[in-house]
Design a protein around this nucleic acid. Structure first.
Length: 430
DNA sequence: TCTGGGGTCCTAGGACCC
DNA sequence: TCTGGGGTCCTAGGACCC
């Protein structure tokens, strides 16, 4: 037997929540079922989720909200600002149910996960249909599933299921399809996972327009034009798995960034932003039980405004040993900001990136920086702040340097309630 | 007037070494 | 003094994803 034959037969089932953010908003406003719903980004700047009814009205993903104001009004579209606290909680509910249905689960994003079946001795398609029913009944979120030998095909199958609900009823299975060619021929290459704007253009220049043409293309040609990533996509379309399970649960980077509601060149405002974003990033870091070595700050002007002078810059500070205590991270962030700040520009965006991430348990105490006692104190204080904030809402407790941030804080005008995490409800549940 | 936020992976090019 | 090529490591930036 060759190694390939002796390998177990693995099947991927990609679960994707339909119109996730819009579905979350509807969950607590059932009167909106059948009506158009749109969720806007921070600052209510652009469209990041649409219900099917909103899609049918021709509202594109990523559309600038101010350009569609008339349409929103004319069709009486229900608008929501983002409520990530709510979406995160609903996501957790969906994922725990999926984990129950499939112990090998790889969570890919807030609304997507791969269920993995090795040598399943049962009808996977039937099982997936049951999963669709259960998630809808128990959580209230509609999902679609694509089944195939590779992740890329499973993603594509999911798209097919979603685009043809009456034919496939939420589940598309590449394993039982009669003619692969007939399915792939009508699909444009940009539908494929990993083929974005630039790669679509390159492929079109090669005369490759549909997925079947890509699947049958010359491997060496694809590699030379689309690099190894494109080559992997081609192999995956042919049923050869190249994108494996994620091995590490640890993120490489943790990022907190915001576009400001107004521009500012006031160093005081930027310092407040650094302090506030560093606090949030440190909180995420501790949630993963990790520590970081590098703290990067980047700032930029408003690149949409061509009449303004443009500037963007970033700087990375290095810690002697890995840290996750908020004041330490703020301190490095402030030093980085000092290196790149220029008073002559008006800033629209600032971000903090934490990298060099390691499990907190593996960190050794640095002789130069802190001692065991200090470390213990930092851990207790950090944990306490996180606990209070998780109940009282983000930023309930924060460091004084974060200020009140009225000048730069985001504008959000249509936020729904934090239905599932409100303090009162927590009390009732517990 | 008003265009998100949080990630991953890959490549090219510079610095440095032998 | 002048010359070369190969290798590694690091970083910035591009492209993609949801």
């Amino acid at each position: 037997m060759t190694p390939v034959e002796s390998k177990s037969k693995r099947i991927y089932a990609l679960v994707d929540c339909n119109n996730f953010y819009a579905s979350c908003e509807r969950l607590f406003r059932p009167e909106l079922n059948g009506k158009p719903v749109v969720v806007l980004s921070n600052n209510d700047g652009c469209v990041i989720a649409r219900s099917n009814e909103a899609k049918d009205l021709g509202i594109p993903m990523g559309a600038a909200a101010f350009k569609f104001r008339d349409i929103f009004e004319k069709y009486n579209i229900n608008l929501f600002s983002t409520n990530f606290t709510l979406y995160g909680d609903i996501s957790n509910r969906v994922m725990s149910l999926l984990r129950e249905m499939s112990p090998q689960l790889e969570i890919y994003s807030v609304d997507e996960a791969f269920m993995i079946f090795d040598n399943a001795g049962f009808d996977i398609e039937e099982y997936c249909r049951k999963t669709v029913d259960r998630v809808y009944k128990e959580v209230g979120i509609p999902i679609s599933i694509g089944i195939a030998k590779t992740k890329t095909l499973a993603k594509l199958g999911n798209k097919i299921a979603k685009d043809n609900p009456t034919i496939y009823k939420g589940v598309f299975n590449f394993e039982t399809v009669e003619s692969m060619d007939d399915i792939l021929r009508p699909l444009r290459v940009e539908k494929v996972w990993g083929i974005g704007r630039k790669n679509t253009k390159r492929l079109n220049e090669l005369g490759i327009y549909n997925v079947l043409e890509l699947k049958n293309a010359d491997r060496a040609v694809i590699k030379s034009f689309l690099t190894v990533s494109g080559e992997r996509t081609l192999l995956e379309l042919n049923g050869i798995p190249c994108i494996e399970m994620e091995e590490s649960e640890i993120k490489n980077t943790i990022l907190t960034s915001r576009t400001f509601a107004k521009t500012t060149n006031d160093l005081k405002h930027l310092k407040e932003a650094v302090s506030s974003f560093a606090s949030r990033a440190a909180e995420k870091l501790r949630m993963d039980e990790c520590a970081c070595t590098f703290v990067t700050v980047y700032i930029s002007t408003n690149y949409h405004k061509e009449t303004d002078d443009q500037y963007e810059a970033s700087w990375t500070e290095t810690s002697i040993s890995p840290i996750n205590y908020t004041p330490n991270i703020i301190k490095l962030g402030m030093e980085a900001l000092k290196k790149i700040y220029k008073p002559e520009f008006k800033y629209k965006r600032l971000g903090i990136v934490l990298s060099g991430i390691v499990p907190a348990s593996e960190t050794v105490v640095s002789l130069f920086q802190t001692n065991e006692d200090q470390k213990v104190k930092e851990n207790i204080l950090g944990g306490l702040i996180d606990k209070i904030n998780s109940v009282e809402g983000r930023d309930f407790v924060r460091f004084a340097s974060s200020g009140h941030g009225d000048a730069w804080r985001m504008g959000q005008h249509m936020v729904s309630n934090r239905y599932t995490t409100d303090w009162n409800e927590l009390l009732e549940i517990e």
